[in-house]
Design a protein around this nucleic acid. Structure first.
Lengths: 151, 151
DNA sequence: ACATAACTGCGACTCGGTTGCAAATCGGGC
DNA sequence: GCCCGATTTGCAACCGAGTCGCAGTTATGT
């Protein structure tokens, strides 16, 4: 009963936390991994693998592989806004949900509790447990409703 | 004021309706287009371009181009369920919304009015006008909640 | 039956992401 | 301080989903 998942989600507060947590799990701290963590801790908004590769002048493959590793080990996660690439953000930034407007192609974050009424309604009527942390809620934002164009 | 959009959404009831509607607009009725329409009228569930190409032994490019044309002219539309290819369905099947479970990778349809409370809540709290006809609502279905795996 | 606009097939290309493999590198033990 | 082996990297090739340019074909109004 104790060969459990090692998904001990570690929403590390700092780079050093993350480094320690990773090392304990037998992962190494390559310079690339280090630079990715630095960049991710330096920003608040989610970034695509391409963004990160460009900012840090890294090979895309390595970025993807590192992001995957960090995600598997509960340091970060990614979110999909409509079409377009996945966007990566540290777990320590919080388990926010996203609403994405295909009109202006921008997203806003929402505190999960503000969507609980929605979740409850859908659970009660359909039995589904929905979440907008991995796939954003899609809809036209206040300034794009009425506008027939876009997406 | 009359060079308006020709988006007179024609949720054609039958193949013949569709054919007429397309011909009026200066489009031709190639054999490929014909066969696609036949197949689409023969099924109720949404199909991917690949599905259609395989079933009818068609070149993928042509399938995509025809689907795009038919979509532009309001005969059909496509929906995205999580990852995976777009799925095409005739408009005459109704403007249903979709809930997709990444656990079992299946979707169910929902009559739009059953989601109106959700829409209202989100409109009031956030000003967004959401819809799940193009991007499905994502969540674990009753039999996949509790199951930690999948997606 | 003919002109011509619409359509098709082919191949190349895009974007987002994954994989195989040989070479480089990290880091615990000595 | 250096050695060994596991981890990580870079490269190139590949993948799924979809688009595009272009030369050749076909449907349709006259």
């Amino acid at each position: 009963m104790t060969d459990a998942p090692q998904v001990t989600t570690l929403a590390c507060e700092s780079i050093d936390d993350a480094i320690d947590a990773l090392r304990v799990r037998g992962l190494r701290l390559s310079s690339i991994r280090m630079r990715l963590l630095e960049e991710l801790f330096a920003v608040t908004r989610p970034l695509s693998a391409e963004d990160l590769a460009a900012r840090l002048d890294l090979v895309l493959t390595s970025v993807y592989r590192n992001l995957e590793t960090l995600e598997r080990h509960g340091v970060l996660r990614h979110v999909h806004l409509g079409h377009g690439p996945g966007l990566y953000v540290l777990l320590v930034r919080g388990e926010l949900e996203y609403i994405y407007c295909p009109g202006c192609r921008t997203a806003r974050t929402v505190r999960p509790d503000l969507l609980d009424p929605v979740r409850t309604h859908i659970r009660r009527r359909f039995g589904y447990e929905v979440s907008f942390t991995h796939f954003a809620l899609i809809g036209r934002c206040p300034s794009c409703v009425g506008d027939p164009a876009a997406e």
